[in-house]
Design a protein around this nucleic acid. Structure first.
Length: 106
DNA sequence: CTCTTGACGCCGG
DNA sequence: TCCGGCGCCAAGA
């Protein structure tokens, strides 16, 4: 059973890679989906090893991209077609939120 | 061993 | 809608 902390990181990275284009997941959603750790732990993993996965698909519950990479993330959203809010600086979690399954909403 | 910080989340004003 | 504060868990100094 997953007792090694490194396993948690792998689970997070694997889930992030599974996030389809145009959809995003919040740190809390990932932690809740994995049913372990917490939003802070997910953010820690992303900042540590998130460089090998589509980290731009992982954002805060507010829909705001990680600090220091806002510009990078916005470019990805424009390229992937991620639904953004009128402000253009945040993601429309209302529709871009991915639950981990193939289409749960609607 | 203790204190502070951090790619967070939620509530109140 | 924006700002500030508190809570939660783990790593670093």
């Amino acid at each position: 059973m997953p007792a090694d902390p490194d396993d948690f990181a792998e689970l997070v990275l694997e889930l992030v890679e599974r996030i389809p284009p145009g959809s995003v997941m919040s740190y809390g959603d990932i932690a809740d989906y994995l049913a372990q750790g917490g939003p802070r732990q997910v953010g820690r993993v992303m900042s540590a090893q998130g460089g090998g996965v589509p980290w731009w698909r992982v954002i805060r519950a507010d829909g705001s991209p990680p600090p220091g990479h806002e510009r990078r993330a916005l470019e990805r959203y424009a390229a992937e077609g991620t639904p953004l809010r009128p402000d253009g600086t945040r993601v429309d979690m209302r529709s871009a939120r991915w639950n981990g399954s193939s289409q749960g909403s609607c």
